[in-house]
């Protein structure tokens, strides 16, 4: 089995102490780093496939680590963060982190995030293919969306929004990313656009728009589309 190598960056020994045996048991090779500097060095020398990064580090801010990593590497980054650090989390995602998980978390949840992030990385340069999720089919080549064989009529903006979420299926996409890619850089703060369009989109694509299963809300952060089947 081709073991993926995971770099765990956390200064709390207790966290390292339970992550290492658990991730090893889940089939990953674990490399540890306790500071930002160590983390940057480990990425350069040990070529991990993914980084799990705690935002609170003794020597530098976790966001700085992301920024400098993104200068030369597109390695998937999953952030460990606290629930009360909303803005920090969003900033990290906007800086290029792939996903986040809130403390305290179960190992199952973490391994799911790791799998998605690793898979997405493999798919990043792939040619767009037809995607399917919960009975919804998105054909990016024909620009066609259908639900159980019936065509769903979407406005161009709704389609752009859906496609962006589908391309990052399984991962959170921040409000800002959605707004700037669909409406343009000037609309980064126009959250109300998003609320309205996501609502319309759900009316058209979800089986039960009051309990969305395809486009899920990540409160305060963004939206996450369910993984393709």
């Amino acid at each position: 089995m081709n073991q993926s190598r995971i770099l765990v960056v956390d200064d709390e020994p207790q966290i390292q102490r339970f992550l290492k045996p658990s991730l090893t048991a889940a089939g990953y090779e674990v490399v540890e780093a306790a500071t930002g500097a160590e983390a940057l060095k480990a990425v350069a020398t040990q070529a991990p496939d993914l980084v799990i990064l705690d935002l609170g580090l003794p020597d530098m801010d976790g966001k700085e680590v992301i920024a400098s990593l993104r200068g030369w590497s597109d390695i998937p980054i999953v952030i460990l963060s606290a629930r009360d650090r909303e803005s920090e989390k969003i900033a990290a995602l906007d800086l290029g982190a792939d996903d986040y998980i809130e403390k305290p978390f179960g190992i199952g949840e973490l391994t799911a995030r790791i799998r998605t992030a690793l898979r997405n990385r493999g798919r990043r340069d792939a040619i767009p293919t037809v995607m399917e999720v919960d009975g919804l089919t998105i054909d990016p080549i024909k620009r066609l969306v259908s639900r159980d064989g019936e065509t769903v009529h979407l406005t161009p903006k709704e389609y752009d929004l859906l496609l962006l979420l589908a391309r990052h299926a399984g991962r959170v996409v921040t409000h800002r990313t959605l707004l700037t890619s669909v409406w343009g850089p000037a609309h980064g703060d126009d959250l109300h656009y998003l609320r309205v369009f996501i609502g319309q989109l759900r009316q058209k694509i979800e089986r039960d728009p009051t309990q969305p299963r395809i486009v899920r809300t990540e409160p305060g952060v963004g939206y996450r589309m369910a993984e393709h089947e």
């Binding site: 207790q14 966290i15 102490r17 045996p21 048991a25 305290p104 199952g108 949840e109």
Partner: peptide
């Protein structure tokens, strides 16, 4: 305070879930 409470909690949750889901694969 939240850090002091959360770190042990995160450790416990992580260890418990790790043991439950992956326990048989550990030494």
């Amino acid at each position: 305070i939240s850090h002091d409470l959360r770190t042990p909690l995160a450790t416990i949750t992580g260890a418990v879930t790790g043991l439950r889901q992956l326990g048989e694969r550990m030494t």
